[in-house]
Design a protein around this nucleic acid. Structure first.
Lengths: 215, 215
DNA sequence: TTTAAGCGATGATTTATATCATCGATTTTA
DNA sequence: TAAAATCGATGATATAAATCATCGCTTAAA
């Protein structure tokens, strides 16, 4: 439980007694857009993709959720209808917390409540920035953003395996599979990255950052 | 004060004693991106535009704030640095509430706290949707969205005056001034709207909605 | 009050990126 | 295990929308 230090023993106990852990395999859906929210969900382990499904199969990948992060919180606190979908990208465990128990704790614990507000706000601001970048950067900048996203936010290192297919990566970058592949291949030819299947190594972090900044 | 019924007399009094109203003229800046947040801001009257300034003069207009709405809340609750700027579009009055007084009320009033979380969440979801539409709809759909935004969300009627210049409207639609003007002119020629300077009347709400939905 | 800047509008041109097509390899499903 | 779907990859083509240019008109600044 994150920020457990803000909770009293009784509150922690209450939440524990009203939680249960559910396991998901790769590609399992966790919840679908437009369904009613039922629980607070906390990713305990694994990796989950959060995405919006539009008409004509358009998908916008909003973010990846890592362990310790709440998922679907904006929808739960907002209008109680999931505004996006979530699917496990790796074997994952999610802690489902009864919403009433959670609300009761929020009601009586101002500090925790404020902390959660801060999390919700930062969550919102983070996705704003991603979407604004998508709208106003052109391809190389957006692909650089995806590389930095995994390197900095998800894995914390410049060498990693993409946990997503090219199509999904394109959805994260706000482009098409073909354009994503092309641009990534250019990066490889320009020796900005090493690329072998899903394995990537950022050779020149400086160039990637510059590409991201220039847009 | 919105949701005053959730506050006790003392809490209301505390907030009143720690608030002051500031007036703004058209085009006056309320706060600038990257500055520290200092107060909770509540729009009492007028109209304010909330926007993100990027490098090379790129501006993304996120939303318009109407009376009764908090402005800058995500930044205040998030990382205490304004993530976007706000400028009065009409003569406006803004109630500045001391952040500590406000937090104290939040700390001791769970219901108000939950309500605010809900507001913050919906605020975030609303802007998400706008930005996602911008990324994935093409021009006519985006222009239709702008028309619907003013007709439904801001003015609540199908006839109104644009409170913004064409350039600003374009920033709201995620396009350029020229493209915005062109598309709006097409709408006029196609008799979907009546247009005279900044005065608009949506002739066929159905078509506008269809354009918005088809993207 | 003259100058300068920004406005709405429209035409011509360029360009970034989507779309379409294909293909062998891999994965999923029937 | 056979058939079908999806994957990564690359080339050719189409197109939506940005950019550039110009032009009166209004608004703001010197």
């Amino acid at each position: 439980m994150p920020y457990a230090q803000l909770l009293s023993d009784e509150q922690l106990e209450l939440i524990r007694n009203n939680s249960n852990i559910v396991s998901y395999n790769k590609k399992d859906s966790v919840f679908r857009q437009s369904t009613r929210t039922s629980h607070i969900m906390l990713l305990a382990s694994g990796l989950v993709k959060i995405f919006k499904e539009g008409r004509n199969e358009r998908v916008v990948l909003l973010r990846m959720a890592s362990p310790g992060e709440y998922i679907g919180m904006l929808s739960v606190m907002g209008d109680q209808i999931h505004q996006y979908s979530a699917t496990a990208v790796e074997t994952s465990e999610i802690c489902f917390i009864d919403i009433n128990a959670f609300r009761n704790v929020l009601m009586e614990n101002g500090k925790f409540s404020l902390k959660l507000m801060s999390i919700i706000s930062q969550d919102g601001l983070f996705i704003f920035n991603r979407l604004i970048n998508q709208t106003h950067k052109q391809l190389p900048g957006r692909i650089a953003d995806v590389l930095l996203y995994f390197a900095d936010n998800i894995y914390g290192k410049s060498q990693f395996d993409f946990p997503l297919t090219r199509r999904e990566l394109a959805e994260l970058a706000g482009t098409t599979k073909e354009s994503f592949i092309r641009t990534l291949t250019e990066f490889k030819h320009d020796k900005i990255i090493d690329l072998d299947g899903s394995h990537v190594r950022i050779i020149s972090m400086d160039i990637v950052k510059t590409l991201s900044e220039l847009g």
